[in-house]
Protein backbone atom coordinates (compact mmCIF):
# COMPACT_ATOMS: atom_id res chain seq x y z
CA UNK A 1 0.00 0.00 0.00
CA UNK A 2 2.71 2.62 0.79
CA UNK A 3 4.37 1.88 -2.54
CA UNK A 4 1.03 2.35 -4.25
CA UNK A 5 0.67 5.81 -2.77
CA UNK A 6 4.29 6.76 -3.40
CA UNK A 7 4.01 5.67 -7.02
CA UNK A 8 0.80 7.61 -7.39
CA UNK A 9 2.60 10.72 -6.14
CA UNK A 10 5.61 10.14 -8.39
CA UNK A 11 3.54 9.57 -11.50
CA UNK A 12 1.73 12.84 -10.88
CA UNK A 13 -1.19 14.40 -12.68
CA UNK A 14 -0.75 14.02 -16.42
CA UNK A 15 -3.99 15.19 -17.97
CA UNK A 16 -3.42 17.82 -20.65
CA UNK A 17 -5.21 21.10 -19.93
CA UNK A 18 -6.77 20.89 -23.38
CA UNK A 19 -8.51 22.80 -24.92
CA UNK A 20 -7.80 25.62 -22.44
CA UNK A 21 -4.08 25.53 -23.22
CA UNK A 22 -2.43 24.78 -26.54
CA UNK A 23 -0.82 21.32 -26.50
CA UNK A 24 2.94 20.87 -26.90
CA UNK A 25 3.40 18.81 -30.04
CA UNK A 26 6.52 17.21 -31.54
CA UNK A 27 8.54 19.79 -33.49
CA UNK A 28 8.59 17.61 -36.58
CA UNK A 29 4.86 16.88 -36.60
CA UNK A 30 3.28 17.26 -40.03
CA UNK A 31 0.04 19.16 -39.62
CA UNK A 32 -1.77 21.54 -41.95
CA UNK A 33 0.27 22.04 -45.15
CA UNK A 34 0.99 25.46 -46.64
CA UNK A 35 1.45 25.95 -50.36
CA UNK A 36 2.99 28.64 -52.50
CA UNK A 37 2.87 28.05 -56.22
CA UNK A 38 4.86 31.22 -56.86
CA UNK A 39 7.86 29.05 -55.99
CA UNK A 40 6.97 26.33 -58.50
CA UNK A 41 9.31 26.13 -61.52
CA UNK A 42 7.21 26.31 -64.66
CA UNK A 43 5.72 22.97 -65.64
CA UNK A 44 6.99 21.22 -62.51
CA UNK A 45 4.80 18.42 -61.17
CA UNK A 46 7.30 16.84 -58.76
CA UNK A 47 5.06 17.13 -55.69
CA UNK A 48 2.02 15.67 -57.43
CA UNK A 49 4.14 12.90 -58.95
CA UNK A 50 5.62 12.00 -55.57
CA UNK A 51 2.29 11.88 -53.74
CA UNK A 52 1.41 8.24 -53.01
CA UNK A 53 -2.33 8.88 -52.99
CA UNK A 54 -2.54 11.52 -55.77
CA UNK A 55 -3.82 14.08 -53.30
CA UNK A 56 -2.05 17.05 -54.94
CA UNK A 57 -3.13 19.09 -57.93
CA UNK A 58 -0.33 21.23 -59.33
CA UNK A 59 -0.11 23.69 -62.21
CA UNK A 60 -1.48 27.09 -61.15
CA UNK A 61 -2.71 27.30 -57.58
CA UNK A 62 -1.70 24.24 -55.63
CA UNK A 63 -4.39 22.12 -54.07
CA UNK A 64 -4.16 19.27 -51.56
CA UNK A 65 -6.99 16.95 -50.76
CA UNK A 66 -6.43 16.48 -47.03
CA UNK A 67 -8.86 13.57 -47.12
CA UNK A 68 -6.39 11.64 -49.24
CA UNK A 69 -3.22 13.10 -47.74
CA UNK A 70 -1.11 10.70 -45.65
CA UNK A 71 0.80 13.67 -44.16
CA UNK A 72 3.94 11.90 -45.30
CA UNK A 73 7.07 13.86 -46.15
CA UNK A 74 7.23 12.85 -49.84
CA UNK A 75 5.84 16.02 -51.48
CA UNK A 76 7.86 18.39 -49.33
CA UNK A 77 10.97 16.30 -49.97
CA UNK A 78 10.29 16.25 -53.71
CA UNK A 79 10.13 20.04 -53.90
CA UNK A 80 13.52 21.74 -53.77
CA UNK A 81 11.78 25.14 -53.82
CA UNK A 82 9.74 24.66 -50.66
CA UNK A 83 6.43 25.27 -52.42
CA UNK A 84 4.78 22.78 -50.04
CA UNK A 85 5.64 22.43 -46.40
CA UNK A 86 3.84 21.09 -43.38
CA UNK A 87 3.11 23.27 -40.38
CA UNK A 88 2.49 22.07 -36.85
CA UNK A 89 -1.13 23.15 -36.94
CA UNK A 90 -3.12 20.22 -35.65
CA UNK A 91 -6.71 21.48 -36.12
CA UNK A 92 -7.83 19.66 -39.26
CA UNK A 93 -11.33 18.24 -38.80
CA UNK A 94 -14.11 19.38 -41.11
CA UNK A 95 -17.85 18.85 -41.41
CA UNK A 96 -17.88 18.19 -45.14
CA UNK A 97 -15.75 16.17 -47.49
CA UNK A 98 -15.33 19.11 -49.88
CA UNK A 99 -13.91 21.29 -47.13
CA UNK A 100 -10.92 18.96 -46.98
CA UNK A 101 -9.85 19.99 -50.46
CA UNK A 102 -7.49 22.76 -49.45
CA UNK A 103 -6.60 25.38 -52.04
CA UNK A 104 -3.52 27.52 -51.72
CA UNK A 105 -4.16 30.72 -49.81
CA UNK A 106 -7.54 29.65 -48.53
CA UNK A 107 -8.32 28.90 -44.93
CA UNK A 108 -9.44 25.44 -43.93
CA UNK A 109 -13.09 25.59 -42.90
CA UNK A 110 -13.02 23.62 -39.66
CA UNK A 111 -15.91 21.56 -38.39
CA UNK A 112 -18.80 23.30 -36.69
CA UNK A 113 -21.19 22.22 -33.99
CA UNK A 114 -23.83 19.58 -34.66
CA UNK A 115 -27.12 20.82 -36.08
CA UNK A 116 -29.24 22.40 -33.35
CA UNK A 117 -31.69 19.55 -32.86
CA UNK A 118 -28.99 16.86 -32.73
CA UNK A 119 -26.84 19.05 -30.52
CA UNK A 120 -29.66 19.40 -28.01
CA UNK A 121 -29.90 15.63 -27.74
CA UNK A 122 -26.21 14.66 -27.95
CA UNK A 123 -24.23 17.76 -27.08
CA UNK A 124 -23.64 17.10 -23.41
CA UNK A 125 -23.36 13.33 -23.50
CA UNK A 126 -22.03 11.67 -26.61
CA UNK A 127 -21.72 7.88 -26.68
CA UNK A 128 -19.84 6.41 -29.60
CA UNK A 129 -19.33 2.91 -30.95
CA UNK A 130 -16.05 2.46 -32.75
CA UNK A 131 -16.00 0.35 -35.91
CA UNK A 132 -12.65 -0.68 -37.33
CA UNK A 133 -13.22 -1.50 -40.98
CA UNK A 134 -10.04 -2.22 -42.88
CA UNK A 135 -7.20 -0.01 -41.75
CA UNK A 136 -3.87 -0.57 -40.08
CA UNK A 137 -4.74 -0.24 -36.39
CA UNK A 138 -2.95 3.12 -36.32
CA UNK A 139 -6.13 5.21 -36.07
CA UNK A 140 -7.63 2.72 -33.61
CA UNK A 141 -4.54 3.10 -31.41
CA UNK A 142 -4.68 6.87 -31.43
CA UNK A 143 -8.43 6.90 -30.79
CA UNK A 144 -7.88 4.54 -27.87
CA UNK A 145 -5.33 6.94 -26.46
CA UNK A 146 -8.12 9.44 -25.84
CA UNK A 147 -9.23 7.16 -23.01
CA UNK A 148 -5.90 7.47 -21.21
CA UNK A 149 -5.31 9.91 -18.37
CA UNK A 150 -3.50 12.21 -20.80
CA UNK A 151 -6.63 13.12 -22.75
CA UNK A 152 -9.30 11.86 -20.34
CA UNK A 153 -12.10 11.92 -22.87
CA UNK A 154 -14.76 11.22 -20.24
CA UNK A 155 -14.48 14.73 -18.78
CA UNK A 156 -16.07 16.08 -21.97
CA UNK A 157 -19.04 13.74 -21.70
CA UNK A 158 -17.77 11.57 -24.56
CA UNK A 159 -17.50 7.84 -24.08
CA UNK A 160 -16.93 4.77 -26.22
CA UNK A 161 -19.58 2.16 -25.52
CA UNK A 162 -19.71 -1.56 -26.13
CA UNK A 163 -22.86 -1.77 -28.24
CA UNK A 164 -24.26 0.28 -31.11
CA UNK A 165 -27.63 0.09 -29.32
CA UNK A 166 -26.13 2.19 -26.52
CA UNK A 167 -24.49 4.61 -28.91
CA UNK A 168 -25.36 7.97 -30.40
CA UNK A 169 -23.05 7.44 -33.31
CA UNK A 170 -20.20 5.58 -34.94
CA UNK A 171 -16.56 6.45 -35.15
CA UNK A 172 -15.26 4.64 -38.21
CA UNK A 173 -11.66 3.87 -39.08
CA UNK A 174 -10.37 1.96 -42.09
CA UNK A 175 -11.04 1.99 -45.81
CA UNK A 176 -14.16 -0.22 -45.39
CA UNK A 177 -13.28 -3.56 -46.88
CA UNK A 178 -15.71 -5.68 -48.85
CA UNK A 179 -15.52 -8.04 -45.90
CA UNK A 180 -16.60 -5.37 -43.40
CA UNK A 181 -19.35 -3.85 -45.47
CA UNK A 182 -22.19 -5.91 -44.03
CA UNK A 183 -20.97 -5.57 -40.44
CA UNK A 184 -20.71 -1.80 -40.83
CA UNK A 185 -24.17 -1.51 -42.36
CA UNK A 186 -25.71 -3.59 -39.57
CA UNK A 187 -23.89 -1.66 -36.87
CA UNK A 188 -25.09 1.63 -38.34
CA UNK A 189 -28.66 0.37 -38.49
CA UNK A 190 -28.47 -0.66 -34.85
CA UNK A 191 -27.71 2.87 -33.66
CA UNK A 192 -30.89 4.74 -32.63
CA UNK A 193 -31.75 8.15 -34.14
CA UNK A 194 -30.55 10.83 -34.08
CA UNK A 195 -27.19 9.33 -35.00
CA UNK A 196 -23.93 10.70 -36.24
CA UNK A 197 -20.89 9.26 -38.00
CA UNK A 198 -17.29 10.31 -37.58
CA UNK A 199 -14.67 9.19 -40.10
CA UNK A 200 -11.15 9.16 -38.67
CA UNK A 201 -8.07 8.87 -40.86
CA UNK A 202 -7.22 8.88 -44.54
CA UNK A 203 -8.55 5.33 -44.99
CA UNK A 204 -12.01 6.09 -43.61
CA UNK A 205 -12.19 9.31 -45.64
CA UNK A 206 -10.83 8.19 -48.99
CA UNK A 207 -9.36 4.68 -48.78
CA UNK A 208 -5.95 6.08 -47.79
CA UNK A 209 -3.01 4.02 -49.00
CA UNK A 210 -5.45 1.29 -50.06
CA UNK A 211 -7.50 3.58 -52.29
CA UNK A 212 -8.90 1.87 -55.38
CA UNK A 213 -7.86 -1.63 -54.31
CA UNK A 214 -10.71 -3.87 -55.44
CA UNK A 215 -10.92 -5.20 -51.87
CA UNK A 216 -11.98 -1.83 -50.38
CA UNK A 217 -14.79 0.70 -50.81
CA UNK A 218 -12.66 3.88 -50.44
CA UNK A 219 -14.02 4.99 -47.12
CA UNK A 220 -16.99 5.30 -44.82
CA UNK A 221 -19.15 7.71 -46.83
CA UNK A 222 -19.52 5.08 -49.54
CA UNK A 223 -21.84 3.32 -47.05
CA UNK A 224 -23.09 5.81 -44.47
CA UNK A 225 -23.46 9.61 -44.24
CA UNK A 226 -20.53 11.22 -42.42
CA UNK A 227 -20.81 14.21 -40.06
CA UNK A 228 -17.18 14.74 -39.14
CA UNK A 229 -14.00 14.07 -41.12
CA UNK A 230 -10.70 13.87 -39.24
CA UNK A 231 -7.81 13.60 -41.71
CA UNK A 232 -4.38 12.12 -41.00
CA UNK A 233 -2.51 8.85 -41.23
CA UNK A 234 -3.18 8.47 -38.42
CA UNK A 235 -4.35 11.83 -37.08
CA UNK A 236 -2.61 12.90 -33.89
CA UNK A 237 -4.85 12.23 -30.85
CA UNK A 238 -5.13 15.98 -30.29
CA UNK A 239 -6.45 16.36 -33.84
CA UNK A 240 -9.13 13.75 -33.15
CA UNK A 241 -10.06 15.30 -29.82
CA UNK A 242 -10.19 18.76 -31.38
CA UNK A 243 -12.62 17.45 -33.99
CA UNK A 244 -14.86 15.79 -31.39
CA UNK A 245 -14.93 18.95 -29.27
CA UNK A 246 -15.89 21.07 -32.28
CA UNK A 247 -18.76 18.72 -32.95
CA UNK A 248 -20.20 19.23 -29.48
CA UNK A 249 -19.51 22.95 -29.47
CA UNK A 250 -16.72 22.94 -26.89
CA UNK A 251 -14.29 24.49 -29.38
CA UNK A 252 -15.77 27.24 -31.45
CA UNK A 253 -13.40 29.18 -33.71
CA UNK A 254 -13.98 27.91 -37.18
CA UNK A 255 -11.12 28.69 -39.50
CA UNK A 256 -7.55 27.54 -39.63
CA UNK A 257 -5.37 29.81 -41.71
CA UNK A 258 -2.36 28.05 -43.13
CA UNK A 259 0.08 30.79 -42.27
CA UNK A 260 2.13 29.64 -39.30
Amino acid sequence: MPSLILTRLRQGKRTLPFPETEPVLPERIRGLPVMDHARCPSGCTSCADACPTDAITSGGNLQIDLGRCLFCPECANACPEGAIRFTSQYQLATSSRNDLVLTEGEALRLAGRLAEQTYRVLGRSLKLRQVSAGGCNGCESDVNVLNTVVFDLGRFGIQFVASPRHADGLLITGAVTQNMRLALEKTYQAVPYPKIVIAVGACAISGGPFRDHPEVLNGADSIVPVDLYVPGCPPHPVTILDGLLRLIGKIKESRATPSS
Binding site: D49, A50, C51, P52, T53, L70, C72, E74, S132, A133, G134, G135, C136, G174, A175, T177, Q178, N179, M180, A183, P209, F210, H213, P214, E215, V216
Partner: peptide, 23 residues
Protein backbone atom coordinates in the same frame (compact mmCIF):
# COMPACT_ATOMS: atom_id res chain seq x y z
CA UNK B 1 -12.31 -8.61 -42.23
CA UNK B 2 -9.28 -6.36 -42.61
CA UNK B 3 -8.28 -7.87 -45.96
CA UNK B 4 -7.47 -4.96 -48.23
CA UNK B 5 -5.31 -6.59 -50.91
CA UNK B 6 -1.88 -5.40 -49.84
CA UNK B 7 0.19 -8.19 -51.38
CA UNK B 8 -1.60 -8.08 -54.70
CA UNK B 9 -1.11 -4.31 -54.88
CA UNK B 10 2.64 -4.75 -54.47
CA UNK B 11 3.04 -6.84 -57.63
CA UNK B 12 4.64 -4.79 -60.40
CA UNK B 13 6.32 -2.45 -57.88
CA UNK B 14 8.15 -0.94 -56.26
CA UNK B 15 6.17 2.22 -56.94
CA UNK B 16 5.46 5.41 -55.08
CA UNK B 17 2.88 3.79 -52.85
CA UNK B 18 4.97 0.76 -51.90
CA UNK B 19 6.70 2.13 -48.80
CA UNK B 20 3.36 3.48 -47.56
CA UNK B 21 1.73 0.08 -47.92
CA UNK B 22 4.63 -1.33 -45.89
CA UNK B 23 4.05 1.27 -43.19
Amino acid sequence: YQHRGVERALVGGPGKRTIHLME
